[in-house]
Nucleic acid binder design. Structure first.
Lengths: 233, 233
DNA sequence: TTCATTTGTTGATCTGAATCAAGGAACGTC
DNA sequence: GACGTTCCTTGATTCAGATCAACAAATGAA
């Protein structure tokens, strides 16, 4: 891999912790890879062979029960880190929700490099702490929120996270965006069925809180109302 | 605080990363504190003022919705770390489930010390990654498992974690132990009501899978069956 | 364009867990 | 040891969301 200095996530991924010369060393260990929508890059239960930075695209982190039930336990955006460093097995799968570009490292190489670069580990720690906060917030949703609250929360979360890297954005998030998930995936993330997700979206639309220009697009018409409905903590 | 070398969690808490002289420095920053059952040491939404190692006792990490709904998002055992380092606000509360002993630091002191001790940060990173794995496993439970599967999973998890530090233990976990949670707390952890938890426990007892000598004690009679019922990943 | 396939919506029915209700067992206090 | 309180269990009923079913709309291939 050459020329990380041109990388679009150079300053937002954990690489931001590194000086140019250190970055050169790391870049020798990694390679850019394109993955197509639907492609799985990490399998649950497999040896944790690789880790990666997301350069572009959106991916899901998911866990399965043997009988086919699936729970999405994380959604990963550009500049986020994926994989399970410092662990033998990956407890989850990672699958592309859109075409994506990754900056991939072998886990053993990355682990060794990270252990020698405390600033990098510090960035990784901060990222992991944030991810843990988000996971716990989602546990509250899955354990205690009603269907309409879950859907409202998801829309706000997507609005916010999709807006984070974007250029011209309000503090709160995008008012119009394309969902990176289909209805089934929304259900798998929210602990609901596809039908329930669809009904709740229809209801929000009927109430004028949102518009649904097409299958994937969402426009938030009344953010305040959506926030009330989300039963935020 | 004096003499960490005698501390019962010296070798299992993150302190294990430190050399004796470094530990002396850290110990100057901290203090031992006893907290009684039911006492809250960190409040959701408050400034994240303190962090701590758990020396003894068991605590819950919880999040609330304004209307009173509560979700327990973590259970913390001796040698575990509590608090939100490198963050302004604590997104959750921490409350003692039993009388407990903590080794408390001001967050700012701890943050500064940690940033200068990469080995300590590395331990903290590993711990946080493990906690994230556990949180995601629980998301699978909350999003997809039926009531009887949730209760079975909880019993196995408690059996295992209570056995971890204990002296003479089988690989799998303790076959008999005292629950650190009452029925309400089990419900708040499992995303179920107190009545449903009680019914599922009664059913497991009636089926001979477990025994319930008293309110808090559990004996696992048929671990294999309990594992099947837990719908493990 | 047409046709087949996938994806999403809506309605009817069912069901697992919540809620409502009552009573029983353990616990702490005096 | 009696008393009030808290915690737990069990039963009856309700309800939110799952499941079953049909169809509509978008997508894509020939």
């Amino acid at each position: 891999m050459k020329d990380c200095s041109q990388c679009v996530v150079r300053n937002s991924a954990i690489c931001a912790a590194l000086m140019p010369d250190e970055l050169d060393v790391l870049s020798q260990l990694g390679r850019k890879q394109r993955v197509g929508r639907g492609q799985t890059v990490v399998w649950e239960g497999d040896d944790a062979i690789i880790v990666a930075n997301v350069v572009s695209g959106i991916l899901k982190v998911s866990m399965n029960i043997h009988d086919g039930r699936e729970q999405i336990v994380g959604v990963v955006f550009p500049s986020d880190f994926i994989g399970r460093p410092f662990g033998q097995k990956s407890p989850y799968s990672v699958t592309a929700l859109s075409d994506a570009e990754l900056c991939i490292f072998s886990r053993s190489n990355f682990d060794a490099f990270a252990r020698n670069h405390p600033e990098l580990e510090h960035k990784l720690l901060q990222r992991t702490l944030n991810e843990l906060d988000r996971a716990r917030e989602w546990m509250l949703l899955l354990g205690k929120k009603a269907a309409h609250e879950r859907v409202a929360t998801l829309l706000l979360e997507m609005s916010q996270r999709l807006g984070e890297n974007g250029c011209s954005t309000t503090e709160a998030g995008l008012d119009s965006f394309e969902l990176p998930l289909d209805r089934q995936q929304m259900g798998d993330l929210l602990g609901l069925t596809i039908e329930t997700v669809s009904r709740q979206l229809s209801r929000l639309k009927a109430d004028g809180v949102i518009s649904l220009p097409d299958r994937r697009m969402v426009a938030i018409n009344d953010r305040r109302r959506l926030q009330d409905l989300s039963a935020a903590a």
